[in-house]
Amino acid sequence: MPNILDILLSPFMIRALIAVVLIAFVASTAGSFTVYRGLTFLVAGVAHAALAGAALAILLDMYGIIPGFPEILGAAVFAIITALIAGYVGRKGESERMEVAIGVSFALTMSIAILLISMIKEYAVRAWGLIMGDILLLTEKDLLLLAITTLIVVFTTLLFYKEFVFVSFDMEGATAYGVRAELYHYIMLLLIALSVVVVLKGVGAILVYAMIVVPAAAANQFSKNTTSVMIWSFFIALFGGLVGLIVAALYVNVAPSAIAGLIVTVFYFIALIFSRR
């Protein structure tokens, strides 16, 4: 069907395809450490904080307080602050305490987001764009930002891979064996926060969880080692994203990220059923 091929080769679709590949890299690196650390809730918390940050940026721009204030910067600042607060609470490795802190900042930033969105009525659609996301509407600038961030996340993860694994496994032991565990703990959280912010525009605040956390969670059900989790989560995320795009190319009114979200969650449930752990 040449029709579909035309759509798949159109510039917006090619940008979307590149984005899907980049998101798969983020899912396999930042995503797997999110799962290891038991911090999947952080992804949801940070996504909603980013939303509040973006809404604030829109407000500052709209009222001419800081004209042209970029949404992504507002989003990144809020996301990083949330990650650092959660990180501070859990700096000794207590994930349970972090969950509570994330929950509280979730409530705070969500309240701020809703308050701000209600104040920017006519521009609220811009904020809604971030809640829903649209991978087909990514600009070249968005894509460049996603590419740079992916590069940073992948490079840092590979560089400190061994340390990240050790800290995720046993923070106290890592410190005792001479690893600067607290430093790596914060680096990991920053990478997760940055990943969420850049993926947000493509898949939306709600489904960012599906794309970052779920592929790694599925892979972790059946993988014997961390390398295998990385490889499998990459392909699960990639497969979900590609199917999403193809379905969107076939049926114009379907949101690709929603299809991708459905696909990866199906992977998770299949992995859950068949894993013998």
Partner: peptide, 18 residues
Amino acid sequence: ERISTNVPIRVADIVLMG
């Protein structure tokens, strides 16, 4: 009790870790 079982890691790799 303080050790995470979320990380899929082989026995040999744990011993190597230190």
